[in-house]
Amino acid sequence: MTSLPKDTPRKLGLVIDLDTCVGCQACVIACKGWNTENYGAPLSDQDPYGADPSGTFLNRVHGYEITPDQGAAQLVHFPKSCLHCEDAPCVTVCPTGASYKRAEDGIVLVNETDCIGCGLCAWACPYGAREMDQTAGVMKKCTLCIDRIYNENLPEQDREPACVRTCPAGARHFGDLADPDSAVSQLVAERGGFDLMPEMGTKPVNKYLPPRPKDRLEETDILAPFLDPVADSPQGFLGWLDRALDRL
């Protein structure tokens, strides 16, 4: 049913640390690998080795540049996947009931056998979290690795999303954001975790931790102000050339 649950006792989601992410794309590959080999239709590629490759990905890492008024620009690696919104617009627009939000843990999923591939949910998502698989003709999205997190056949340390498990920098955290005492909630509170596009009113469960301010090179030599400034007019041969050219 595409009605959204009023509230979910658990809000499973990711906390992504933009300060720590090194942009290695390991999460992208781990996600593609796990979700191609396991639950649902595989994530297909079109023309993967040709001139115009493209494919279905549930997790993509963008790069942004922040240029402050003063000082050097800063680059931020920015992984983006489904935010499992509390007020998910993708769910309510679905005409078939294929899209749904689980009442028990808030995970947003697609029942692929009910999906007619109309694409309206992808239109409704402001974040670009849903992609229609060109081969299967059904909508694909992050499942929060539902076939890992509850999978008792896996060793306990593997019962988290593939992207979190693989991240070498520890930039991705998985947990229950409804529980204020959980590690992820603590992290959000401590670091000032924020929502993407909060004005959209979607109330994302996933949170992002802001990049910390970078160190700046300060003047450390207390004698420096007393030293002669470096000559800004050229000397020697260059000086002669400069004067000669001026006279021309």
């Binding site: 933009l18 992208v28 493209s54 990905f57 993509r60 890492v61 963008h62 790069g63 942004y64 540049e65 922040i66 240029t67 402050p68 008024d69 620009a73 800063q74 680059l75 931020v76 920015f78 983006k80 924020f194 929502d195 993407l196 992002y208 802001p210 990049p211 301010p213």
Partner: peptide, 15 residues
């Protein structure tokens, strides 16, 4: 992006 502290520009696309 929720990024602040200056002008934000898309620097590199995911693919």
């Amino acid at each position: 992006t929720g990024l602040s502290g200056g002008q934000v520009r898309a620097f590199s696309p995911p693919h």
